[in-house]
Structures are given as C-alpha cells and as structure tokens.
C-alpha cells in the first residue's frame, strides 16, 4: 500500500516550485489576487482610487510592525511588545510636542524610545537568557503601563496641524477649487505612510538579502549553535533585530498617532498579533531561519484587504476576526505541506 502511494506523492511534490519560500510567496500572492478580484465583484467601490489609497494607509501600520517582526521571527524569536511599544512611542512624541518640542525632533525621540524598548528586549533575551516570548511579554506590560502612567490614561489631543502631516498628508495631491467654493479633490495623492512603508520595506529587504547582518539573522534562526561556531556574533545579531523591531514599532506609533492627531496611550492593543499573522501568512516560520519582507508585505495586505473588503461588505468586525483567524491557520497549513516533502 505504501509502495503505491509514495510515487504519486513524489509526483505531486515535484510539481512544486524549486524554492519552498518562493512557493509559499506565490500561493500568498495568489490568495491576495483572489481576494481583490472577489471584493471588486462584490463592491464596485472597492477598486476605486480612493479605496485603494485607504487600504494602503490602513496597511502601513501593520506593515511597519510586520517588517520588524519578520526580522525577529527569522532569528527564531518573537516580539509580543510591538503594540505596546507603538503606544509608548506615540505617547512620548505627543508629550514632547505638547511640551513645545518641534514635531520632527519629537518624533525622532519617539522612535528612539521604541528602539530603546527593543534594545532592552534584546538585552533580556541575549544576556539574561530569557526566552523571547517571556521577555517581550514583559516589555508588552512595561511599555503599556508606562504609556498609561505617563498620560494618566488620558489621550493627548490638540497637538497642532504639523503633528498630523505624517499620518494624513499625501504626495502628488491635486485639489481644485470648485465653483461652489468647496475644494474638489482630483487625485487624493499617495499617503505619506504608504511611501514610508515602501521605503522601509525596500531598506529592510536590502539589509536582509544583501548585507552580512541579514545573512547572520537567517543563520542565527536556522541553527544558532552553528552560527556561533562559524564566528557569527549571535547575540549582537539578535540585539540588532529586536532593536529594529522596537524602532519600527516607534515609527508605526508615530504614523498612527499622527493620523489620529491625538496621542492615544491605549492604541495598538493586539497589533502584535496582526504583525505576527502578516509575517506567518507571508511564509515566515516561527522556528526561525525562514521568512522575508516581500512575503510579510503580501501577508499585511491580505489582512488589510480582508478587513477593508469585509467592512465594505458590511461584515461585522467580529466576523472579520474569525475570517483572519482561519486565514492564519490556512497559511501555516500550506507551510507544513511544503515542509512535509
């Protein structure tokens, strides 16, 4: 019986593309395409310029978190703190602005706050030898608590127009004055958050593929002991990954708070799970050594398109949760299929 079934299994696996990662990326991309097609049939407004830009905007925060998450996951770790760090960073920026610091340096300080949280995560993981899950769970509580304590759990509003530019501004925005005196938007422009996401994704991808640190991130997650014996500075590699994840959470926090023009210490709850989902849908393995920025971007957009499309279809956010949950399981199932061969 086994003799009969085995050749057919071999034939099936031989049809798969050579690189397992490429296979996963193709299947994720296909899923994304099917979603887009299905939603545009369901609602004609789905494919409009405005809605496309809205999806870009909505996905940018998860995308930024997902990029940092991907690097950490490739090292074989996980970062549960990004949602809280996002809130703390945005809050710090908001408080700075409120205290009279100009917006740009205030945002830089906010990002530095995120990077510092990430560095602390890396320190706890590498020097105190605490598992990433527990270390970043601790930071998740610490950062959220700090954000709430600093603000007395109250949102900081009236931060001024300049604070809102990053989240609400757009490049190539074309506005025409209508005859009735109201402005008419001809082209809403490419939102700054989307541009930021693309730039960060390209830089991160370059780092992972073309620089030694990227190779070391993969090697560390693939076989930490082998990497160490090969002369890779494993601890330093992990520190960099966690610090970048924290810094990107800081960037995402600033984007989000800027969009709301309010520093909200309770924002970003459970965002880490969306970021993990994006990475996993995109083919990253929680065992380490596998993953990529392009995959995570596809994963982030699958989540973004699903949310947006289901919203337009009037599906409740609870049902959306259920759907996304099944997508995550389905993605990991595909991942296992390819690993079985």
């Amino acid at each position: 019986m086994a003799n009969i079934s085995q050749p057919s299994q071999g034939a099936w696996t031989r049809m798969l593309p050579n690189s397992a990662a490429a296979f996963h990326r193709i299947s994720a991309l296909l899923t994304l395409a099917i979603l887009v097609i299905a939603f545009s049939f369901a609602s004609p407004a789905f494919l409009s310029v405005n809605n496309t830009l809205t999806i870009l905007l909505q996905t940018s925060v998860i995308g930024l978190l997902g990029i940092g998450m991907t690097m950490v996951i490739i090292t074989g770790g996980i970062d549960l703190s990004v949602g809280s760090v996002l809130a703390l960073s945005g809050t710090v920026t908001g408080m700075m602005v409120k205290a009279g610091v100009p917006v740009v340096p205030a945002m830089m300080l906010g990002v530095c706050m995120g990077a510092a949280c990430g560095l602390f995560n890396g320190f706890v993981v590498t020097k105190m030898k605490i598992t990433p899950f527990v270390a970043t769970l601790g930071m998740m509580l610490i950062a959220r608590g700090a954000a709430l304590q600093l603000t007395g759990a109250a949102p900081i509003s009236q931060l001024g127009e300049a604070f809102g530019v990053l989240g609400n501004g757009a490049l190539f925005r074309v506005v025409e004055m209508g005859d009735n005196g109201f402005p008419r938007v001809i082209f809403p422009g490419i939102p700054y958050p989307a541009i930021l996401l693309v730039v960060v994704a390209i830089v991160a991808s370059y780092m992972l593929r073309r620089r030694a640190i990227g190779r070391h991130i993969y090697a560390t997650g693939s076989n930490e002991e082998a990497a160490r014996l090969s002369g890779v500075l494993v601890d330093r590699t992990k520190l960099i990954a966690y610090t970048l994840s924290g810094a990107l959470a800081g960037v995402a926090g600033n984007v989000l708070m800027s969009r709301l023009i309010t520093a909200q210490p309770s924002e970003g709850v459970m965002y880490e799970l969306d970021a993990i989902a994006a990475a996993v849908i995109g083919g990253a393995s929680l065992m380490g050594g596998v993953g990529g920025i392009s995959g995570t971007m596809i994963g982030a957009f699958i989540i973004g398109v699903l949310r947006n499309g289901l919203n337009m279809g009037g599906v409740s956010s609870f049902i959306q949760q259920i759907v996304i949950g099944f997508v995550v399981i389905g993605a990991v199932y595909i991942d296992q299929l390819r690993n079985r061969r």
């Binding site: 190779r215 090697a219 693939s222 076989n223 082998a226 014996l229 090969s230 002369g231 890779v232 050594g289």
Partner: peptide, 23 residues
C-alpha cells in the same frame, strides 16, 4: 574545526554556509 554535527545552517545554501561569519 569540522564538527561532528557539521554546524551548518540548514536554511542557507552551500556558499552561504561556506562563508558564514566571513562573507
């Protein structure tokens, strides 16, 4: 050193392993 466990990073290809740590 050639370790008994070989000390290879399984997800990387042969050249990446050969030059790991001294790319």
């Amino acid at each position: 050193t050639i370790y008994q466990t070989l000390a290879l990073a399984d997800h990387l290809d042969a050249p990446s392993n050969l030059f790991l740590g001294r790319e």
